[in-house]
Protein backbone atom coordinates (compact mmCIF):
# COMPACT_ATOMS: atom_id res chain seq x y z
CA UNK A 1 0.00 0.00 0.00
CA UNK A 2 1.13 3.52 -0.72
CA UNK A 3 0.97 6.34 1.81
CA UNK A 4 -2.39 7.40 0.50
CA UNK A 5 -4.08 4.19 1.35
CA UNK A 6 -2.54 3.77 4.79
CA UNK A 7 -5.01 3.69 7.63
CA UNK A 8 -4.78 4.04 11.36
CA UNK A 9 -5.34 0.70 13.07
CA UNK A 10 -7.71 2.30 15.56
CA UNK A 11 -10.11 3.37 12.84
CA UNK A 12 -13.20 1.46 11.91
CA UNK A 13 -13.12 -0.93 9.05
CA UNK A 14 -15.91 0.37 6.85
CA UNK A 15 -17.95 -1.62 4.36
CA UNK A 16 -18.95 -0.69 0.83
CA UNK A 17 -22.40 0.17 2.16
CA UNK A 18 -20.92 2.68 4.58
CA UNK A 19 -19.74 4.69 1.57
CA UNK A 20 -23.28 5.15 0.32
CA UNK A 21 -24.78 8.52 1.21
CA UNK A 22 -28.22 6.96 1.42
CA UNK A 23 -29.67 9.37 -1.13
CA UNK A 24 -31.93 7.83 -3.78
CA UNK A 25 -29.78 7.23 -6.82
CA UNK A 26 -31.43 8.94 -9.79
CA UNK A 27 -29.62 7.44 -12.75
CA UNK A 28 -31.81 5.65 -15.28
CA UNK A 29 -32.49 1.98 -14.48
CA UNK A 30 -29.85 -0.12 -16.19
CA UNK A 31 -27.33 2.76 -16.45
CA UNK A 32 -23.71 1.69 -16.35
CA UNK A 33 -23.04 4.32 -13.67
CA UNK A 34 -24.52 2.04 -10.98
CA UNK A 35 -21.73 -0.43 -11.54
CA UNK A 36 -19.04 2.24 -11.25
CA UNK A 37 -20.58 3.55 -8.04
CA UNK A 38 -20.76 0.07 -6.50
CA UNK A 39 -17.17 -0.79 -7.38
CA UNK A 40 -15.85 2.52 -6.09
CA UNK A 41 -17.60 2.00 -2.78
CA UNK A 42 -16.17 -1.50 -2.59
CA UNK A 43 -12.63 -0.31 -3.35
CA UNK A 44 -12.82 2.48 -0.76
CA UNK A 45 -13.86 -0.11 1.81
CA UNK A 46 -11.15 -2.55 0.71
CA UNK A 47 -8.49 0.10 1.06
CA UNK A 48 -9.65 0.91 4.56
CA UNK A 49 -10.54 4.51 3.82
CA UNK A 50 -12.43 6.47 6.43
CA UNK A 51 -15.33 8.62 5.22
CA UNK A 52 -13.48 11.89 5.63
CA UNK A 53 -10.48 10.74 3.63
CA UNK A 54 -11.42 10.51 -0.05
CA UNK A 55 -12.59 13.81 -1.51
CA UNK A 56 -14.69 13.55 -4.65
CA UNK A 57 -15.11 16.29 -7.23
CA UNK A 58 -17.26 16.26 -10.34
CA UNK A 59 -18.31 18.54 -13.16
CA UNK A 60 -21.65 18.49 -14.94
CA UNK A 61 -23.44 15.61 -16.59
CA UNK A 62 -24.99 12.31 -15.52
CA UNK A 63 -21.64 11.03 -14.27
CA UNK A 64 -21.13 14.14 -12.19
CA UNK A 65 -24.00 13.31 -9.83
CA UNK A 66 -21.61 10.69 -8.46
CA UNK A 67 -20.45 12.63 -5.35
CA UNK A 68 -24.05 12.96 -4.07
CA UNK A 69 -24.27 9.19 -3.76
CA UNK A 70 -21.08 8.81 -1.75
CA UNK A 71 -20.92 9.43 1.99
CA UNK A 72 -17.55 11.17 1.69
CA UNK A 73 -16.84 14.86 1.11
CA UNK A 74 -18.14 15.72 -2.33
CA UNK A 75 -18.12 18.75 -4.58
CA UNK A 76 -20.41 18.99 -7.59
CA UNK A 77 -18.77 21.67 -9.70
CA UNK A 78 -19.57 23.33 -12.97
CA UNK A 79 -19.28 22.00 -16.47
CA UNK A 80 -15.76 20.94 -17.39
CA UNK A 81 -14.02 22.32 -14.32
CA UNK A 82 -13.81 19.26 -12.08
CA UNK A 83 -10.11 18.67 -12.74
CA UNK A 84 -9.32 22.32 -12.00
CA UNK A 85 -11.34 22.36 -8.77
CA UNK A 86 -9.79 19.04 -7.77
CA UNK A 87 -6.29 20.39 -8.45
CA UNK A 88 -6.79 23.22 -5.94
CA UNK A 89 -8.30 20.82 -3.44
CA UNK A 90 -5.45 18.31 -3.81
CA UNK A 91 -2.84 21.04 -3.40
CA UNK A 92 -4.26 22.02 -0.02
CA UNK A 93 -5.15 18.47 1.05
CA UNK A 94 -2.09 16.54 -0.12
CA UNK A 95 -2.72 13.63 2.22
CA UNK A 96 -6.22 12.96 0.99
CA UNK A 97 -7.05 10.95 -2.12
CA UNK A 98 -8.86 13.29 -4.52
CA UNK A 99 -11.14 11.66 -7.09
CA UNK A 100 -12.76 13.15 -10.15
CA UNK A 101 -15.95 11.67 -11.60
CA UNK A 102 -16.57 12.99 -15.07
CA UNK A 103 -18.01 12.23 -18.49
CA UNK A 104 -16.91 12.46 -22.10
CA UNK A 105 -18.61 15.83 -22.62
CA UNK A 106 -17.36 17.22 -19.33
CA UNK A 107 -13.74 16.06 -19.57
CA UNK A 108 -13.04 15.75 -23.29
CA UNK A 109 -14.97 18.77 -24.57
CA UNK A 110 -15.53 21.76 -22.27
CA UNK A 111 -12.94 20.55 -19.76
CA UNK A 112 -10.29 19.36 -22.20
CA UNK A 113 -7.77 21.98 -21.19
CA UNK A 114 -7.96 21.20 -17.48
CA UNK A 115 -7.71 17.49 -18.23
CA UNK A 116 -4.49 17.63 -20.23
CA UNK A 117 -2.85 19.88 -17.66
CA UNK A 118 -3.90 17.67 -14.74
CA UNK A 119 -2.18 14.82 -16.62
CA UNK A 120 0.87 16.85 -17.61
CA UNK A 121 1.43 18.16 -14.11
CA UNK A 122 0.94 14.77 -12.50
CA UNK A 123 -1.30 16.40 -9.91
CA UNK A 124 -2.14 13.05 -8.27
CA UNK A 125 -5.83 13.08 -9.09
CA UNK A 126 -7.78 9.90 -9.74
CA UNK A 127 -9.87 10.66 -12.80
CA UNK A 128 -12.70 8.34 -13.74
CA UNK A 129 -14.06 9.11 -17.19
CA UNK A 130 -17.54 7.68 -17.68
CA UNK A 131 -17.38 7.39 -21.45
CA UNK A 132 -20.77 6.67 -23.02
CA UNK A 133 -19.93 8.54 -26.24
CA UNK A 134 -23.04 10.73 -25.99
CA UNK A 135 -24.43 13.73 -24.12
CA UNK A 136 -26.94 12.13 -21.80
CA UNK A 137 -28.10 14.87 -19.42
CA UNK A 138 -28.80 17.29 -22.28
CA UNK A 139 -30.65 14.45 -23.99
CA UNK A 140 -28.70 12.98 -26.81
CA UNK A 141 -26.27 15.22 -28.70
CA UNK A 142 -23.03 13.78 -30.05
CA UNK A 143 -19.94 14.05 -27.85
CA UNK A 144 -16.22 14.35 -28.61
CA UNK A 145 -15.98 10.57 -28.37
CA UNK A 146 -18.97 9.80 -30.64
CA UNK A 147 -17.90 7.88 -33.71
CA UNK A 148 -17.91 9.46 -37.16
CA UNK A 149 -21.22 8.98 -38.93
CA UNK A 150 -23.24 8.58 -35.73
CA UNK A 151 -26.82 9.81 -35.92
CA UNK A 152 -27.78 11.97 -32.97
CA UNK A 153 -30.04 14.97 -32.34
CA UNK A 154 -27.33 17.38 -33.43
CA UNK A 155 -26.09 15.15 -36.23
CA UNK A 156 -29.28 13.94 -37.92
CA UNK A 157 -27.27 13.13 -41.05
CA UNK A 158 -24.33 11.70 -39.19
CA UNK A 159 -21.35 13.09 -37.27
CA UNK A 160 -18.80 14.50 -39.71
CA UNK A 161 -15.89 15.01 -37.32
CA UNK A 162 -13.54 12.54 -35.65
CA UNK A 163 -13.64 11.29 -32.08
CA UNK A 164 -11.01 11.64 -29.39
CA UNK A 165 -9.35 8.50 -28.16
CA UNK A 166 -9.28 9.32 -24.41
CA UNK A 167 -6.44 7.00 -23.47
CA UNK A 168 -4.32 8.32 -26.35
CA UNK A 169 -5.04 11.86 -25.19
CA UNK A 170 -4.06 11.02 -21.61
CA UNK A 171 -0.85 9.34 -22.79
CA UNK A 172 -0.09 12.26 -25.05
CA UNK A 173 -0.50 14.55 -22.06
CA UNK A 174 1.95 12.38 -20.15
CA UNK A 175 -0.37 10.84 -17.57
CA UNK A 176 1.55 8.41 -15.38
CA UNK A 177 -1.29 5.90 -15.03
CA UNK A 178 -3.61 5.20 -17.95
CA UNK A 179 -6.17 2.43 -18.04
CA UNK A 180 -9.35 1.38 -19.80
CA UNK A 181 -12.13 -0.78 -18.47
CA UNK A 182 -15.88 -1.29 -18.89
CA UNK A 183 -19.00 -1.10 -16.71
CA UNK A 184 -20.05 -4.65 -17.61
CA UNK A 185 -16.92 -6.24 -16.18
CA UNK A 186 -17.23 -5.47 -12.47
CA UNK A 187 -14.24 -7.56 -11.51
CA UNK A 188 -11.85 -5.79 -13.83
CA UNK A 189 -13.47 -2.44 -13.03
CA UNK A 190 -12.82 -3.00 -9.34
CA UNK A 191 -9.23 -4.06 -10.02
CA UNK A 192 -8.50 -1.00 -12.12
CA UNK A 193 -10.10 1.42 -9.65
CA UNK A 194 -8.08 -0.14 -6.86
CA UNK A 195 -4.80 0.04 -8.80
CA UNK A 196 -5.54 3.67 -9.71
CA UNK A 197 -6.13 4.42 -6.03
CA UNK A 198 -2.75 2.97 -5.15
CA UNK A 199 -0.93 4.86 -7.88
CA UNK A 200 0.96 7.96 -6.84
CA UNK A 201 0.31 10.53 -9.55
CA UNK A 202 -2.53 11.40 -11.87
CA UNK A 203 -4.37 8.18 -12.69
CA UNK A 204 -6.72 8.20 -15.63
CA UNK A 205 -9.35 5.50 -16.11
CA UNK A 206 -11.52 5.43 -19.18
CA UNK A 207 -14.62 3.46 -18.26
CA UNK A 208 -16.74 2.51 -21.25
CA UNK A 209 -20.22 2.96 -19.91
CA UNK A 210 -23.51 2.12 -21.52
CA UNK A 211 -26.19 4.82 -21.77
CA UNK A 212 -29.40 2.84 -21.93
CA UNK A 213 -31.45 5.78 -23.19
CA UNK A 214 -29.38 7.63 -25.79
CA UNK A 215 -26.67 5.22 -26.89
CA UNK A 216 -27.77 1.79 -25.81
CA UNK A 217 -25.60 -1.05 -26.99
CA UNK A 218 -22.68 1.16 -27.93
CA UNK A 219 -20.27 -1.30 -26.40
CA UNK A 220 -22.08 -4.57 -27.12
CA UNK A 221 -19.19 -5.82 -29.24
CA UNK A 222 -16.92 -5.34 -26.26
CA UNK A 223 -19.26 -6.66 -23.57
CA UNK A 224 -21.65 -9.28 -24.95
CA UNK A 225 -20.63 -12.73 -23.81
CA UNK A 226 -20.69 -14.39 -27.20
CA UNK A 227 -18.55 -11.84 -29.03
CA UNK A 228 -16.47 -9.91 -26.55
CA UNK A 229 -13.56 -12.34 -26.23
CA UNK A 230 -12.77 -12.00 -29.89
CA UNK A 231 -12.95 -8.21 -29.71
CA UNK A 232 -11.04 -7.33 -26.60
CA UNK A 233 -7.52 -7.85 -25.38
CA UNK A 234 -6.96 -7.98 -21.64
CA UNK A 235 -3.62 -6.40 -20.81
CA UNK A 236 -1.75 -8.13 -18.03
CA UNK A 237 1.68 -7.07 -16.97
CA UNK A 238 4.40 -9.57 -17.97
CA UNK A 239 2.03 -11.72 -20.01
CA UNK A 240 2.05 -12.22 -23.78
CA UNK A 241 -0.86 -10.58 -25.55
CA UNK A 242 -3.26 -13.42 -26.30
CA UNK A 243 -7.01 -13.11 -26.85
CA UNK A 244 -9.98 -14.83 -28.42
CA UNK A 245 -12.69 -17.15 -27.14
CA UNK A 246 -10.25 -20.03 -27.45
CA UNK A 247 -7.17 -17.97 -26.54
CA UNK A 248 -5.84 -18.76 -29.95
CA UNK A 249 -4.98 -15.30 -31.23
CA UNK A 250 -1.96 -13.19 -30.40
CA UNK A 251 -0.60 -9.70 -31.05
CA UNK A 252 2.76 -9.25 -32.74
CA UNK A 253 4.57 -6.23 -34.06
CA UNK A 254 5.23 -5.93 -37.74
CA UNK A 255 7.56 -2.96 -37.81
CA UNK A 256 5.59 -0.42 -35.74
CA UNK A 257 2.25 -1.98 -36.56
CA UNK A 258 0.55 -4.49 -34.33
CA UNK A 259 -0.95 -7.44 -36.18
CA UNK A 260 -3.10 -10.39 -35.17
CA UNK A 261 -1.62 -13.85 -35.61
CA UNK A 262 -3.50 -17.13 -35.39
CA UNK A 263 -1.71 -19.38 -32.94
CA UNK A 264 -3.50 -22.50 -34.15
CA UNK A 265 -2.00 -22.00 -37.59
CA UNK A 266 1.35 -20.60 -36.40
CA UNK A 267 2.02 -21.96 -32.89
CA UNK A 268 5.73 -21.20 -33.33
CA UNK A 269 4.92 -17.46 -33.18
CA UNK A 270 3.87 -17.63 -29.53
CA UNK A 271 7.40 -16.73 -28.44
CA UNK A 272 7.35 -13.64 -30.61
CA UNK A 273 4.13 -12.17 -29.23
CA UNK A 274 4.17 -8.77 -27.60
CA UNK A 275 4.56 -9.05 -23.84
CA UNK A 276 2.82 -6.34 -21.84
CA UNK A 277 4.93 -4.05 -19.72
CA UNK A 278 2.93 -1.49 -17.73
CA UNK A 279 6.08 0.04 -16.35
CA UNK A 280 7.78 0.70 -19.70
CA UNK A 281 9.22 4.20 -19.20
CA UNK A 282 9.17 5.66 -22.70
CA UNK A 283 5.47 5.15 -23.20
CA UNK A 284 6.01 3.83 -26.73
CA UNK A 285 4.36 0.48 -26.05
CA UNK A 286 1.36 2.17 -24.44
CA UNK A 287 1.08 4.47 -27.46
CA UNK A 288 0.94 1.51 -29.79
CA UNK A 289 -1.65 -0.24 -27.64
CA UNK A 290 -3.90 2.77 -27.33
CA UNK A 291 -4.31 3.00 -31.08
CA UNK A 292 -5.52 -0.59 -31.38
CA UNK A 293 -9.23 -0.87 -32.11
CA UNK A 294 -11.73 -2.63 -34.31
CA UNK A 295 -11.13 0.05 -36.95
CA UNK A 296 -7.78 -1.45 -37.75
CA UNK A 297 -9.03 -4.99 -37.36
CA UNK A 298 -7.50 -5.31 -33.91
CA UNK A 299 -8.98 -6.08 -30.52
CA UNK A 300 -9.67 -3.20 -28.12
CA UNK A 301 -7.28 -3.39 -25.17
CA UNK A 302 -8.58 -3.27 -21.59
CA UNK A 303 -6.44 -2.96 -18.53
CA UNK A 304 -3.53 -0.77 -17.52
CA UNK A 305 -1.73 0.71 -20.53
CA UNK A 306 0.86 2.51 -18.55
CA UNK A 307 1.93 2.86 -14.94
CA UNK A 308 5.15 4.78 -14.25
CA UNK A 309 6.61 6.54 -11.25
CA UNK A 310 7.33 10.22 -11.32
CA UNK A 311 7.32 12.77 -8.47
CA UNK A 312 3.88 14.37 -8.28
CA UNK A 313 3.11 18.05 -8.67
CA UNK A 314 1.82 18.16 -5.13
CA UNK A 315 5.03 16.66 -3.78
CA UNK A 316 7.05 19.20 -5.76
CA UNK A 317 5.02 22.13 -4.45
CA UNK A 318 5.21 20.91 -0.86
CA UNK A 319 8.92 20.22 -1.12
CA UNK A 320 9.67 23.68 -2.45
CA UNK A 321 7.66 25.32 0.32
CA UNK A 322 9.54 23.28 2.91
CA UNK A 323 12.93 24.02 1.41
CA UNK A 324 12.35 27.75 1.13
CA UNK A 325 10.90 27.83 4.64
CA UNK A 326 13.95 26.06 5.99
CA UNK A 327 16.27 28.46 4.20
CA UNK A 328 14.47 31.71 4.95
CA UNK A 329 12.76 30.78 8.20
CA UNK A 330 9.02 30.63 8.69
CA UNK A 331 7.29 33.84 7.73
CA UNK A 332 5.66 35.95 10.40
CA UNK A 333 3.67 39.15 10.24
CA UNK A 334 6.63 41.11 11.58
CA UNK A 335 8.88 39.60 8.94
CA UNK A 336 6.38 40.34 6.20
CA UNK A 337 6.17 44.00 7.17
CA UNK A 338 9.95 44.24 7.31
CA UNK A 339 10.52 42.97 3.75
CA UNK A 340 12.19 45.43 1.38
CA UNK A 341 14.05 48.70 1.78
CA UNK A 342 12.87 50.46 4.88
CA UNK A 343 13.71 53.90 6.21
CA UNK A 344 12.66 55.70 9.29
CA UNK A 345 11.01 59.10 9.56
CA UNK A 346 11.44 60.71 12.96
Amino acid sequence: MTDQTKIETTELKLTAKDFSSGLDVRWCPGCGDYSILAQTQRVFANLGYQKHEPLIVSGIGCSSRFPYYMSTYGFHGIHGRAAAIATGLKLVKPDHPVWVATGDGDLMSIGGNHFIHACRKNVDLKIMLFNNRIYGLTKGQYSPTSETGKITKTSPYGVVDYPFNPTALALGANATFVARTIDRDPKQLQYIIEEAAKHKGTAFIEILQNCVIFNDGAFDDLSKKDVKDDNILILEHGKPMIFGKDADKGIMLNGFTPIVVNLNVNPQLENMLLVHDEFEESGILADILTHMSEKSGLPTPFGIFRRVKRPTYVEGVTKQINEVTEKKGKGTLQKLLNEGNIWEVK
Binding site: L89, H114, H117, I321, V324, T325, K327, G331
Partner: peptide, 28 residues
Protein backbone atom coordinates in the same frame (compact mmCIF):
# COMPACT_ATOMS: atom_id res chain seq x y z
CA UNK B 1 6.44 34.10 -0.31
CA UNK B 2 6.80 30.31 -0.03
CA UNK B 3 8.17 30.51 3.51
CA UNK B 4 4.80 31.99 4.53
CA UNK B 5 3.24 28.69 3.46
CA UNK B 6 1.74 30.34 0.37
CA UNK B 7 0.77 27.95 -2.41
CA UNK B 8 0.72 29.61 -5.81
CA UNK B 9 -0.77 27.66 -8.67
CA UNK B 10 -0.11 29.08 -12.12
CA UNK B 11 -3.20 27.69 -13.75
CA UNK B 12 -3.70 26.69 -17.38
CA UNK B 13 -6.30 29.43 -17.82
CA UNK B 14 -8.38 31.99 -15.94
CA UNK B 15 -11.17 29.52 -15.30
CA UNK B 16 -8.78 27.06 -13.74
CA UNK B 17 -7.37 29.93 -11.67
CA UNK B 18 -10.70 30.52 -9.95
CA UNK B 19 -11.82 26.88 -10.01
CA UNK B 20 -8.68 25.70 -8.26
CA UNK B 21 -9.18 28.47 -5.70
CA UNK B 22 -12.72 27.25 -5.06
CA UNK B 23 -11.32 23.74 -4.55
CA UNK B 24 -8.75 25.14 -2.12
CA UNK B 25 -11.47 27.04 -0.28
CA UNK B 26 -13.52 23.84 0.00
CA UNK B 27 -10.36 22.36 1.51
CA UNK B 28 -10.11 25.12 4.13
Amino acid sequence: YKNYGVITFQAEDEISGISSAIGASFGG
